[in-house]
Design a protein around this nucleic acid. Sequence first.
DNA 1: AACTTAGTCAACCGCTCCAAC
DNA 2: AGTTGGAGCGGTTGACTAAGT
Length: 336
Amino acid sequence: MGRAPCCDKANVKRGPWSPEEDTKLKEYIDKHGTGGNWIALPHKAGLKRCGKSCRLRWLNYLRPNIKHGEFSDEEDRIICSLYANIGSRWSIIAAQLPGRTDNDIKNYWNTKLKKKLMALLPSHHHNQQNPPPFFPYSSSSSSIHMTTDNNNNNNHHYYYYNTTTTTTPPSMSFTTAPPPSTSTNYYNYNTTIATSPIMSSLPFYQNQQQEQQQALMSPMQQYYPMFGSEGSCSSSDGSCSHGGREIKKEEMGFHHHHHMFHHHEEQQQQAMVVDHDGINNNNQWTEKLDKWLFQTANPLDYDLEVIKQLVISNDGLFSVDENKTVQESKPIIYSD
DNA sequence: AACTTAGTCAACCGCTCCAAC
DNA sequence: AGTTGGAGCGGTTGACTAAGT
């Protein structure tokens, strides 16, 4: 049994709001506030609307200081950085962009910004089924490098799984591990947006060096001010409070990020393997890796301290920890 | 001019969270 | 401690418009 609906769907108006309805809602809230009860509000305001619909209309359109129109490069940069690190937490992203709503940012990302970035990627990433590697994985700077050792003419592909913890904000971190000197093809599967050379070439990253100076401050203060200085206005609900539910949630959600950022930078690089049948399958595996990384919304689900190797075999892609052999491990991507 | 396709974005849906009881 | 129900969130839908054929 599901829960009771919040309103009588048959007796509420749906669809686009008329100017008259907007006026009624705005006048009511200007005069009485929301009263902390959206469900009761439409009846009091004389609106035949669901309370949720009123709330949405107010937050996304009618409340003061809403900013519509073009997003600036700076806003693009902030959205990309945050998306790369926290994913589709639109309300949190919106909280960093005064006047913007989560809905606006979500729409902007889905319809424009994502495509803008896709256009800058190598063509083999343009297939929608194989999303590009700059999409969010976590705030960690984990990455997978693939190299191909053509010099030895053995068609072996080497994947390097890096785990990096860094004191700099994710948007400005760089994975510094160079490809092995023998490699001729180098593909960087960075999981953080700014580590990609493509991303770095975008207009909103042009002043990255300058921003690295700012990186000296705590990233949590920079992006999530509730961890240090001022509270910020959420563009989702317009609140400007340190108290209440939202911030509690964020504190919980970001706990491990916070912790991670305060580690000293260190990087591990583990090489492994690969026994598969040749360079012609290269794309197959790069695509699978992309897909895996993309689907793994939070690679911390895989313990980065444990995963030391990625091993490809005919049965799939395996992560191998120190205590297990390939045979003992379960593939993280199964071979088709 | 008529039709189709693609893009945009406001609004809805269904879920989780959590305060109040 | 368990239940209820409102608030808030993110994903998705669909109406509308613009561009292309």
